[in-house]
């Protein structure tokens, strides 16, 4: 099943301005980790708002879990939202509880999970993101990365089928960033049905994902596996996207005359190849 289907989606903030999202179509099958990359102003965030239902008037079609949302009534929308979890950019704007425990509990309370079960849930999900020792800490004692981990725990406790990251790591330091990505990849190993759509400008994250969509000036300009997408070096450069570290190094070595076979396609393999 396709978790997200978008057809000819178009949206402009006002009638006279250029569309922020311009005739975009793509599908995201279940169980994939998809990254959507593009520079600031490429339309990424607008697309996120469209998918999350923050913008409701648009041209084209959006289907979530096989259901066209234009035709969905309130009850259907509510049912869809139950299957989706969001993690936003700013860690300070999404911490709603006064402690880590309260924050994870917030969503569960909204779903009327009985109190006896709640504590178990909170522990399980705090542990999944490595925050079980911080349950009684308040947000001001946490780093940005830790706050985002709590946000992820809160989202996961609701058993979503789709998790949408809207630049969830862009305000974090490199260590926090790496933690979030490692946790996300680990969660997917545990639950192969979980679909992740991550809107990001981190090309390293995109390089590790299953499928990459590239947005520029509101249009979808490239899509495919990371290997396919990042082979378009020149096109990416033109729209101000860097190549991931591994590919830049490989290209630089090749330019200096080193012969590297095509099957060397990860950093680890390159490491081994160079030390042979």
């Amino acid at each position: 099943m396709n978790i997200i289907e978008v057809e000819h989606l178009k949206y402009a903030y006002d009638k006279n301005s250029k569309p922020a999202v311009d005739d975009v179509s793509f599908t995201i099958p279940a169980g994939k980790y998809v990254t959507l990359i593009g520079h600031n102003g490429s339309g990424k965030s607008t697309l996120a708002k469209l998918l999350s239902g923050l913008i409701t008037h648009y041209e084209g079609k959006i289907s979530l879990f096989g259901q066209p949302i234009e035709k969905a009534d309130n009850a259907a929308i509510y049912a869809l939202r139950k299957k989706m979890g969001f993690v936003f950019q700013n860690p300070d704007n999404q911490f709603v509880g006064s402690t880590v425990r309260d924050d994870i509990a917030f969503g569960l309370e909204n779903r009327q999970v009985p109190h006896e079960e709640m504590d178990g849930f909170i522990h399980t999900y705090a542990k999944k993101v490595g925050m079980e020792d911080y349950l009684d800490q308040s947000p001001e004692n946490l780093s940005g990365g830790q706050k985002q981990r709590v946000a992820i725990a809160g989202v996961l406790a609701m058993h979503p089928e789709l998790v949408l990251y809207d630049e969830a790591t862009s305000m974090l330091d490199p260590v926090g960033k790496r933690d979030i990505l490692d946790i996300t990849f680990h969660l997917r190993e545990e639950n192969p049905n979980l679909t992740v759509l991550s809107i990001t400008h981190d090309v390293e994250e995109a390089f590790r994902s299953d499928y990459v969509l590239v947005l520029n000036a509101g249009k979808l300009v490239l899509e495919g596996t990371p290997a396919e997408v990042f082979s378009h070096t020149e096109e990416l450069k033109k729209i101000h996207l860097d190549a991931p570290f591994f590919l830049s190094l490989k290209a630089a070595l090749k330019a200096k005359g080193m012969e590297i076979p095509d099957e060397i396609d990860t950093e680890e393999k390159l490491e081994e190849f160079l030390c042979r």
Binding site: H39, N40, Q89, E167, S170, M171, H201, V203, H240, L241, D242
Partner: peptide
């Protein structure tokens, strides 16, 4: 550079 894309 926190929160900026790589080009910015």
């Amino acid at each position: 550079t926190a929160g900026l894309d790589p080009a910015a």
